[in-house]
Design a protein around this nucleic acid. Structure first.
Lengths: 343, 343
DNA sequence: TGTTAGCACTCCCATATTTTGAGTGCTGAT
DNA sequence: ATCAGCACTCAAAATATGGGAGTGCTAACA
């Protein structure tokens, strides 16, 4: 497959933009006119034909204008879309709004989700931080009945995680207390990830044979089963006011997508490796069923580790030039906030 | 306004049933035929006319059949609908399914919500128990930094509630520890409600002037701010496959309803006073905006106090004969489960 | 060889027109 | 009270019709 020429690129870019703006198939004549191309409609048709052979465009029926394929959007987003500059969009008020919001972390994420949705006029989505990567501030063991111990972890971000642990052997309150102290002093400042991969091993040697050993084992088990990532979605009703979505197939795939939160979390996770905004267009989201929807997402960090993901879900025909910088900006905002709060 | 005659009742009942089944306005001729009424269509028209004057029926336009008004549905549900018998519907498998599910309470509620949605083919909804009414098993205070104490409450149902408390005055670990012990012994077995209304007052007298007094005050504050009721909703996409819902107004009001979880929780709360299944038809849900949606809900208990609410949301034209017993049955199921688990 | 005008053809779409069928409301007779 | 009969209504489906915006192709031109 041959490369795309300069002129073809330019045309493709304009076609995608035009289609994003109007939602109607783009035909040669009016398009040449509107965008003041200095070529005739006939030439435009030839270019369109070529772009179609290359897989970037298609038409709904013989005598209709062209619309972008998923591949076309992909090429547009990767190479052609010049995002608006943040400063042009004036997101200052977002920051102000945001800073006024409560310190409670869950509420913060909820308000971020709402904000993403209301600014983009699409659905906002936030995956809360993977606790593995947040630094532990304090850790505590509390006996709640003879066979159960409650493990409480307070993170630097102020989140409280608790996990019940079944404990078979008899462990006295004193042992719990001393283990708590040991854990707090040894774990403080490290992330759960560090603890699991590194610290626990060292401690096992250090305390082998002692009474506290028993506790260490179950604590490890408990740490491995921590899985407190939540997903927030807001603005579903925005989506329904979008004409593209009324097509039953599209709407169904959207709803199935957001209802299967577990699956959605996995999809979001794929962003975790990257530091920049990622777009998932149509079937790229989930090769099975998704039609007509796209996801724009990026990570936010705690410390210097990617901890969670936030973004926007909407129709494939969305204004990436605006959505991408919005997601980008919001990501940085959350990153900054979390680093200020977990200090 | 005069009373409804026997015959009118019978006709109304059949009309509502017919409309629930078909979704099409019920006209006199075909209706008389289908239901083998021994009257002529003309007479039927007269009856329909009367039912319309009474406010139970309406027509979409002059030459269309009749459809029930919200008042009509209300009358139907209150006086005319003979619910299916549980045994006819064979919900045994629900119980089996359910008993196989995990003991973790959140997961239990989630699976109940899913079950309600999949059996009714509508949206299932569960309001988790008001912690006020669940008995406290254990209570613990843990210092997490000089100005903050974490209050941990474990309920008999195994739910862990935690609440950060800002504490201004210097409180030593020892005082926290002894307060924890006092709280655990004094509170154990009582509900948070009991504690707030009764126990705390008595304790204040008992410990007035002591070091622990300081803690008691903040604990009271913390108890008052506990508000851990969650709402689970599942099966939203079921709703979209229902022809009644495609009307934009209906769909929007449905989505606005379920998106405003806080508001929805309040609506569900209204069921708390009653021990039987409640139906909210159309505007009864929320006198402002709701059109075409109904809520069928009932309470489940912990001990003998109504603790939470579960139910089904769907179009007003839903099959109450099936939905009502389903909700009823599920409520009992959850009640039984909770009493078995909190023993 | 790339560009373009011209032309035949296609097909959607909006609009109007007609037909059909299920319905109502009324009236006068039983 | 009940009901047959009839005129009337209206939505929805089926059927035209014209126009507009589009494509693809070809042949000529720079």
């Amino acid at each position: 497959m041959r490369a795309v020429t300069e002129r073809e690129s330019e045309v493709l870019k304009s076609i995608v933009q035009e289609y994003i703006a109007t939602g109607r198939p783009v035909g040669s004549r009016s398009f040449v006119q509107k965008y003041s191309f200095s070529i005739s409609p006939a030439t435009m048709r030839n270019i369109m034909y070529d772009l179609e052979s290359l897989g970037f465009l298609t038409h709904p029926h013989t005598s209709a204008g062209r619309i972008p394929t998923d591949t076309g959007y992909r090429y547009f987003v990767d190479f052609l879309s010049d995002s608006y500059d943040i400063s042009d969009l004036d997101y200052g008020y977002i920051r102000d709004d945001f800073m006024r919001s409560e310190v409670h972390l869950d509420k913060m994420f909820m308000s971020i989700t709402k904000m993403l949705s209301s600014v983009s006029r699409l659905a906002g989505i936030v995956l809360t931080p993977n606790p593995d990567f947040t630094a532990v501030k304090q850790i505590e063991l509390v006996s709640i009945d003879p066979e159960t111990v409650l493990l409480i972890i307070v993170t630097r971000t102020g989140v409280v995680i608790n996990k019940k642990i079944a404990i078979s052997e008899r462990v006295t309150r004193d042992i719990l207390f001393s283990t708590s102290n040991i854990l707090s002093s040894e774990f403080a400042g490290f992330s759960i990830y560090d603890i699991k991969t590194d610290i626990l091993g060292k401690m096992r040697q250090k305390y082998s044979g002692s009474d506290e050993q028993i506790c260490l084992d179950v604590v490890e088990l408990a740490l491995n089963s921590i899985n407190e990532q939540d997903i927030f979605i807001e603005g579903i009703e925005n989506i329904l006011h979008i004409p593209d979505m009324i097509e039953k197939e599209v709407l169904t795939s959207f709803l199935r997508l957001i209802e299967e939160k577990k699956n959605l979390a996995e999809i979001m996770q794929r962003t975790m490796d990257s530091d920049s905004v990622q777009t998932f267009i149509g079937s790229e989201i989930d090769n099975s069923y998704v039609v007509g929807c796209s996801l724009v997402a990026c990570c936010y960090k705690i410390g210097n580790k990617n901890a969670g993901v936030l973004g926007v879900i909407g129709p494939t025909r969305m204004d990436y030039r605006k959505v991408v910088p919005l997601v980008d900006y919001t990501g940085r905002l959350v990153t900054n906030f979390l680093s200020s709060v977990s200090r």
